[in-house]
Design a protein around this nucleic acid. Structure first.
Length: 513
DNA sequence: GTTACTGCGTC
DNA sequence: CTCGGAA
DNA sequence: TTCCGAGGACGCAGTAAC
């Protein structure tokens, strides 16, 4: 009887992958390991080295792992298959007392692992492997190990919606094995993604003639239909049919037997304007009272692409896919133009109607599953505020040793003091990180475990997309997608924006109270 | 029963 | 979701 | 250009604790 691959082999590879910053070296290390794996082990190894369990999230928290209190094994004996079976068992526990049972199962697994293996398993389970390689590098490694072209492997994985099975097929049966991974009904494909453009003008400049569409602020949905059978998938390819019965019904009624649609679903107010995102979000991942909530907050799907209609359309140009789509389903508001002025007007119209912005698509482009290319561009509009930094949290990973995540405050001219509007760590260069760490420590007024509180005197220009109602912050409001544009050392606190200004933006955006 | 907290998925 | 850094 | 990782805001589900 052959011995299976040891967990140690994977943990050691992960450690070495993390140790180098060179992409090719990472690829080589992973490819070498894949060459040694057999059968199901291939799928397990691919999942682990992509930073996840085959079972997905299995409900093991940071806290569970820290309260284990088990010793490490002396010798590495755990096989990949053992670990995979243990994960399946752990994921299956539910109900009252489940946290204790799960903890016991995790403890037993960990007691059989060496110290290094324990470290690897911990990182894997909390999703913090941070070896500088995820699915992108994995695809390259699979291609290398199977001696196939990267494009071939990537396409199969994206159309299959999953790398693990494709990796196994590629390694076991090569080119022939990948032939099965064509688009197929009820097997979701990775949705095509977009890059950002500054404004409508840049999008037209990039694309020439472009297919413009409203960008709606809801959730991405992929609908599969064959006859009466309909399944709706989310962006992460979860089956969300149960939570969105009205979408299922709408798709079932479409005049085509077999199709796959791509679109965005959101809830509209009675006047046709969109609900704020956080309101539409009440429909996502929902199990309780679906029939009741669908009456209060019905979801409306807006379709913008057709991937399959009695056959594969992925490789057809966008213009043809959209034309076919219009014959069978209600489509998103759209405009085909090469005129920058018309594009700008279209953007203004979308914004005026309460939407997020527009998309601009290359009419000649195929549906590049899972790719974030320049064939699709998104144009949104950010707002900015000058805010005061109230505190900063110590960073982790490559930001360890630097003050990173910033607490943002706006002057409250009524109550005095500052209203906290959330936090951001985005938009900071290494230079800014170093600067703020230095400067903040000079004006420190207090600290706790992870946070340094500072005198409220540093001003930063903060970009954001929306103001949301916040159940978390005392101010009652929080910024959505906040990021730092620059520090305003030229501005005093008295010159910053006030909480009262923020409230006005909120009322404008949310629709008033 | 109700609340608090964490995990997960959406953006 | 956004951004900056590295290859 | 592509990939990665630094983490942000919500809301719901599920358990544990009260």
């Amino acid at each position: 009887m052959l011995k299976g691959m040891l967990l140690e082999r994977v943990a050691e590879t992960s450690r070495r992958v993390a140790a180098t910053t060179k992409r090719l070296e990472k690829t080589d290390l992973i490819a070498a390991l894949l060459g040694e794996a057999r059968g199901e082990e291939i799928e397990i190894a691919v999942a682990f080295l992509s930073g996840r369990a085959r079972q997905g999230k299995i409900g093991v928290s940071y806290r569970t792992l820290h309260n284990l209190g088990v010793n490490a094994a002396e010798r590495a004996r755990l096989e990949l298959m053992d670990v995979d079976r243990a994960f399946t068992a752990i994921a299956g526990v539910e109900g009252a007392g489940s946290e204790r049972v799960r903890g016991a199962l995790v403890a037993h697994l960990f007691s059989r692992a060496t110290a290094q293996e324990q470290q690897f398993l911990s990182a894997l389970l909390v999703g913090e492997l941070r070896q500088g390689a995820l699915e992108g590098i994995m695809l390259e490694a699979v291609a290398k190990a199977a001696k196939l072209s990267l494009e071939r492997v990537r396409h199969a994985a994206m159309v299959a919606g999953d790398v693990t099975a494709v990796a196994r097929a590629a390694l076991e049966t090569g080119e022939a094995g990948l032939a099965d991974y064509d688009i197929r009904l009820f097997r979701p494909v990775q949705p095509m993604l977009a890059q950002t453009a500054e404004d409508a003008g840049e999008a037209i400049e990039d694309l020439g003639e472009a297919a413009l569409e409203y960008k709606l602020d809801g959730a991405r949905v992929q609908a599969h239909k064959s006859g009466d059978q309909v399944v709706i998938f989310s962006r992460a390819l979860n089956d969300v049919s149960a939570a969105s019965p009205e979408i299922v019904e709408a798709v079932r009624a479409l005049p085509a037997k077999d199709l796959i649609l791509d679109g965005e679903a959101l809830s509209l107010k009675p006047d046709g304007r969109p609900q704020p995102f956080q309101v539409t979000a009440r429909r996502f991942n929902r199990k309780a009272d679906v029939e009741k909530i669908r009456k209060e907050l019905p979801l409306t799907p807006f379709w913008f692409d057709l991937l399959y209609l009695d056959g594969n359309l992925l490789h057809e140009p966008q213009a043809r896919r959209f034309a076919e789509l219009q014959k069978v389903a209600p489509v998103i508001p759209h405009l085909r133009t090469s005129d920058a002025v018309a594009a700008r007007e279209f953007l203004e119209e979308a914004l005026e109607r309460g939407h997020e912005g527009i998309m601009a698509k290359a009419p000649g482009s195929e549906y590049a599953t899972g790719a974030r290319g320049r064939a699709w561009l998104k144009v949104k509009r950010a707002k900015t505020l000058d805010l005061v930094i109230l505190a900063a949290e110590w960073g982790s990973g490559r930001r360890k040793g630097f003050l990173s995540n910033l607490h943002l405050g706006a002057r409250d001219t009524e109550k005095g003091g500052f209203a906290m509007l959330g936090k951001t760590f985005k938009g900071l260069t290494d230079e800014m990180l170093a600067w703020q760490t230095r400067e903040f420590l000079k004006i420190e007024i207090a600290r706790d475990a992870n946070t340094v509180y500072v005198e409220p005197k540093i001003v930063a220009e903060i970009a954001f997309n929306d103001v949301q109602i916040s159940p978390r912050y005392a101010s009652g409001l929080a910024l959505r997608f906040a990021r730092v544009k620059r520090y305003r050392t030229d501005k005093t606190v008295e010159q910053t924006d006030t909480f009262q200004t923020v409230k006005k933006i909120a009322v404008g955006g949310i629709g008033g109270e």
